[in-house]
Design a protein around this nucleic acid. Structure first.
Lengths: 189, 189
DNA sequence: CGAAATTACAGACCGACTGTCGGTTTGTCT
DNA sequence: AGACAAACCGACAGTCGGTCTGTAATTTCG
């Protein structure tokens, strides 16, 4: 059980890579399974053997993308001891990553409507939200009862910033505004 | 040009009402033109005479929904003179309106991916964002250079809160957290 | 008034797409 | 070698969005 498993994994990876590119370029609706098949040279049967359907393929793409983002953010904050500073560094890293069209379209635009709110929230909790909440707790600036909600609101604000930058906003201004926003949220009464 | 125009308007309204319900219940993808036709008793020709396509129908539904929200928020803040208090009242009204599944699904989930980011942003600017920005400016708590970005971030945070409440979160806690969030943002250094 | 133009609507039809299903090849394990 | 399962194939069915031609009713205008 090696050659077969490897071949299967390679096929899945190939489909994932092609689907990622097409979803990012044309969105979920605008990407046909047919197009993925044509670029991969595989048959319908092969694709549906590995992925239950178009939405499952999208979910796999999203999962891989989120995982990649997570790794990069962890790298960026590694070694920073001050909790507020770590939070700042993580946020800035994320906003810069969001310049990637793949992330814009897949993670920020299509994901909620394709997966549905529940699955989308579950996915987010395992990645960006989970990290942000932990970082926010470490700062001790938010009362426990509000931690969860503030983390959600803050993440939404950050994502919005990322989208604005991604669509032609000035990055420096957005980053400065985001830092100011963050500063106000973290400052205790 | 009266009997005909009225009949046309009535047909459009009927399609809009049915489409609004179906889009809210099953989402954009999950709603077929066929279903709208069946419930309305009209023909394909009739629908395509009034609306250019499925996405145009959705956009009309969204526009009508946003307009309705705008009216209710304006009503809620009417007569409040203190700018911070008006902002607070508007935000709380909006978060309560978001309990409506129609608003959740259409405005908060499907709109960005169906319309595309550009058209979606333009629509938002005419409604919720426009109102929030004006209210925020009135408080004089945000420097001019950051006003636009802070309004965007704040709106995103509010919408996120609304979604959380809409999906079973405790409203009282969310409202309290949101008020605290708002307080921190408005507080000047 | 009466012809022409416009509007509202009907429904057959087309192309594209997703997902299914029986069948074939190709490794793997015993 | 033979049983088995995973990988893969491709025809097919069903659905859906959108187009197109036709028809009836109403308004406009000479």
């Amino acid at each position: 059980m090696n050659l077969k498993a490897e071949r299967g994994a390679a096929t899945r990876d190939q489909l994932l890579a092609i689907a990622t590119r097409l979803f990012a370029e044309h969105g979920y609706e605008g990407t046909s399974i047919e197009a993925v098949l044509q670029e991969s040279g595989l048959s319908r049967g092969a694709l549906y053997h590995h992925y239950a359907g178009k939405d499952a393929l999208f979910e796999a793409v999203l999962e891989a993308t989120e995982a990649g983002i997570g790794v990069k953010i962890v790298e960026a904050v590694a070694g920073i001891t001050d909790s507020a500073e770590a939070l700042r560094a993580g946020v800035l890293t994320w906003i810069r990553l969001a310049g990637d069209p793949v992330i814009q379209r897949i993670v920020l635009i299509d994901a909620p409507s394709v997966l549905g709110w529940e699955r989308w929230r579950a996915m987010e909790a395992r990645y960006s939200f989970g990290m942000l909440k932990a970082a926010l707790r470490a700062t001790d600036a938010i009362p426990d009862g509000f931690l969860d909600l503030h983390a959600h609101m803050l993440l939404a604000a950050i994502n919005e910033s990322a989208l604005l930058v991604a669509r032609g906003g000035e990055r420096e201004t957005a980053e400065a505004a985001l830092e100011e926003f963050l500063r106000r949220i973290l400052r205790s009464p």
